[in-house]
């Protein structure tokens, strides 16, 4: 399944610790936040890989690491077979054209002092593509593709609604014709009726331009709609990776089960019959994560071993192709 020419991006043993410092001139390390702690995954060309988890699980940190907006503590990120972490600034510049990002907040992600035209043209300017006239043509074309009126190039972001702004953000990511787009919760700030518009647009764009998506979200139903494969993160670790259908049909990790069960389905009859698993407790702080399996304090299936040893991400081929989970009792049903 996984061969060199189909894999676009591969993340190996990626770690990012944020050190908490005290003092001013004489910095002392007071502890560390293990935001991303040894994660591994790969994304195939043309597919959508969903990364799901609750706040503080490290999914957004992972996105910023792949974009090299922040430096990892250790690990490797292979893009088209090349470790981009070892690239110099000038070499990296070339790759920046190919990896783009769409942000969550359509209000914070567009500079309020730039017109839509300026915003969408910035990637072209930075990468010195085309002259003024060809840029304008390109911008208008891209705006049309994302469903905006090309005549609006001279307007400012605050004249648009949230959904329209998100389209501007997509146009900015699209204009350099990237291969990989990292979507960091692209619809979670939008109204329900607009979410569906944006999701459909993204799926259409993927087909049209053969894009690869890393789709980050906390909403499993949205992720299920767009993804081919899904990784579930909990406190800096990936606890389960599987093709979308398998993950929903037969979740192996108790956290995934709880997460799936926590989302109410918009269908009253079904919802009234459904047995829900309510995971107890809060998401612990990533500063001092629990020992062993990080999920054990909230896990209904936890036993002695879970607090002592950390389970590895293992393949469970009997539960669908390439279904990985990190649990000693993977697949064991939860009885509330």
């Amino acid at each position: 399944m996984k061969s060199e020419d189909t894999v676009l991006l591969e993340v190996k043993n990626l770690k990012k610790y944020f050190y908490l410092r005290t003092g001013f001139f004489f910095n002392k390390t007071a502890g560390s936040i293990k935001a991303v702690d040894n994660i591994n995954f790969f994304i195939r060309r043309g597919e959508t890989f969903g990364l799901v988890g609750e706040s503080g699980c490290g999914k957004s940190t992972a996105a910023r690491l792949i974009l090299r907006l922040i430096q990892p503590t250790s690990g490797e990120i292979f893009y088209k077979g090349k470790n981009i972490l070892t690239l110099k600034r000038s070499q990296m510049f070339k790759y920046r054209k190919e990896i783009q990002i769409i942000f969550q907040d359509p209000y914070a992600s567009l500079s309020p002092r730039m017109t839509i035209g300026d915003i969408v043209s910035e990637p072209l300017e930075v990468h010195r593509i085309g002259d003024k006239n060809s840029r304008i043509k390109e911008i208008k074309h891209t705006l049309k593709i994302v469903g905006l009126n090309p005549e609006h190039v001279n307007r400012y972001p605050h004249e648009f609604s949230g959904g329209q702004r998100q389209r501007v953000g997509i146009a900015r990511a699209l204009i350099l014709q990237p291969e990989l787009i990292i979507c960091d919760e692209p619809v979670s700030a939008l109204d329900v009726s607009v979410q569906a518009q944006i999701l459909n647009l993204m799926i259409d764009l993927q087909k049209e331009f053969n894009l690869t998506y890393l789709f980050i979200a906390h909403d499993l139903s949205v992720v299920k709609y767009v993804s081919n494969r899904i990784g579930v993160m909990y406190l800096g670790k990936i606890v389960e990776v599987a093709p979308a259908e398998d993950l929903y049909k037969k979740p192996l990790h108790p956290y995934t089960m709880g997460l799936l069960s926590a989302i109410p389905i918009p269908d009253p009859d079904l919802e009234k019959q459904r047995q829900r698993i309510i995971l107890p407790g809060d998401v612990p702080s990533p500063i001092n994560p629990p020992s062993g399996c990080r999920f054990h304090p909230r896990c209904p299936n936890a036993q002695d071993i879970c607090s002592k040893q950390e389970p590895e991400l293992k393949n469970y081929p009997e539960n669908g192709n390439n279904h990985f989970a990190a649990c000693f009792f993977a697949g064991k049903p939860i009885n509330n």
Binding site: L69, A108, S111
Partner: peptide, 12 residues
């Protein structure tokens, strides 16, 4: 702000 991150991600 995210628009600064966006510019950085472009290599600005």
């Amino acid at each position: 702000k995210e628009y600064i991150e966006a510019a950085r991600a472009l290599g600005a």
